[in-house]
Design a protein around this nucleic acid. Structure first.
Lengths: 193, 193
DNA sequence: CAGAATTCCTAGCAGTGCTAGGATCTGGAT
DNA sequence: ATCCAGATCCTAGCACTGCTAGGAATTCTG
């Protein structure tokens, strides 16, 4: 029995190794550079070993994305709790979100453009999704007014996501990012006239 | 010389055939299904013929995207000019934009997620980009207030893009689309308090 | 009608994700 | 210590991708 647990531990370690290697490779050279062959070479095992841990390359990306969600949640929480609340909280959370997307583009891609296997939009989805949305919700809710806070949070999230993706792909110049974020926040914090 | 012009005409026709086939295949089965072999079979020529017209698959996608931009411009213009102006114009343009993304997902992908070769964010970019942005701008401008109309338009565009992509990928349920759009428009038309 | 030039296809390259099959190594029982 | 069952892992290969070199076939020109 003792050997069994050791093997399990080693397997878990290697699985972690795979995810870390995939993430580092993606962050260094983009997801296109993450091929099963290169990944196998990186961890010094053969390709089929990858498939004994994950169903396929997509599952590996999903595992990387899961790490990303965890980290995004902690960053959003840190940003939100660092300020008093109200408009400042929304600004802090928004800046944290777009910073995350800019600084970890490969991670962000895995989370929000690839890896559709993550179950969004369902009440029983992964905990990190509920928590992440919860962080946004807590920042948006005080400013919702008559609007449904949940739907308004979705809308605000979509705006941040749009900014992040368009700026990252070069379709909007990054130089005006702060200004765009300022205008967006202005519109969402503006009280009903 | 007469034969020369005939050949040119035939070449242009075949090029159009390639773009149309790529577009139809993408809209029917998604861009993953658009391989050079299938495309060649569809137009009843061999693969290398594709490369005598386009530098590669990406160039074909760019050509499809160009068609998309032209169509998007006309739809935005139609939506904007159909109403009087002010908030209604913004609502009409926003609905036209998200409708376009939902009804022509493959086209939208080629325009805004793939095909980075299109020169966004430069003054001398393609005409359809300037025109398309101009349509949004004309709808946003009357509501800009003290804000820079151009930057505000970029921000509004990003919000629409975020909604379109998150809803399309299943990360936001499509059922609440109208409500989200309503809230977004409410925030962007709300006068400064 | 022969020669030149264009057009086009066959065949192939290097790469992808993924998998079947057998070799190798490990752990436990005799 | 030995032998066998089972887990572990790798080699080799499949079907596919985008793309290209080289030669065959067709077309136009003198």
């Amino acid at each position: 029995m003792a050997t069994g647990t050791r093997r399990e531990r080693e397997r878990a370690q290697r699985e972690e190794l795979i995810v870390r290697a995939a993430r580092e490779l993606a962050e260094a050279e983009g997801w296109d550079a993450v091929t099963t062959r290169r990944l196998a070479a990186e961890i010094e095992y053969s390709q089929p070993v990858l498939y004994s841990h994950f169903k396929g390359k997509n599952a590996i990306m999903t595992a990387v994305a899961a790490q990303g969600f965890e980290e995004l949640v902690t960053e959003l929480r840190a940003a939100r709790t660092a300020v008093r609340g109200g408009p400042e909280a929304l600004a802090a959370v928004a800046a944290a979100y777009t910073d995350f997307a800019r600084e970890r583009p490969a991670l962000y891609d895995a989370m929000f453009t690839h890896a559709v296997e993550v179950e969004f939009a369902t009440p029983d989805g992964p905990a990190y999704l509920r928590e992440g949305f919860g962080e946004l919700l807590q920042a948006v809710e005080p400013l919702a007014g008559d609007d449904d806070p949940g739907v308004l949070t979705e809308t605000f999230w979509a705006s941040l996501h749009g900014l992040a993706t368009l700026e990252r792909s070069g379709r909007l110049p990054m130089s005006l990012h702060d200004e765009r974020l300022r205008l967006l926040l202005g519109r969402f914090t503006r009280p009903k006239g």
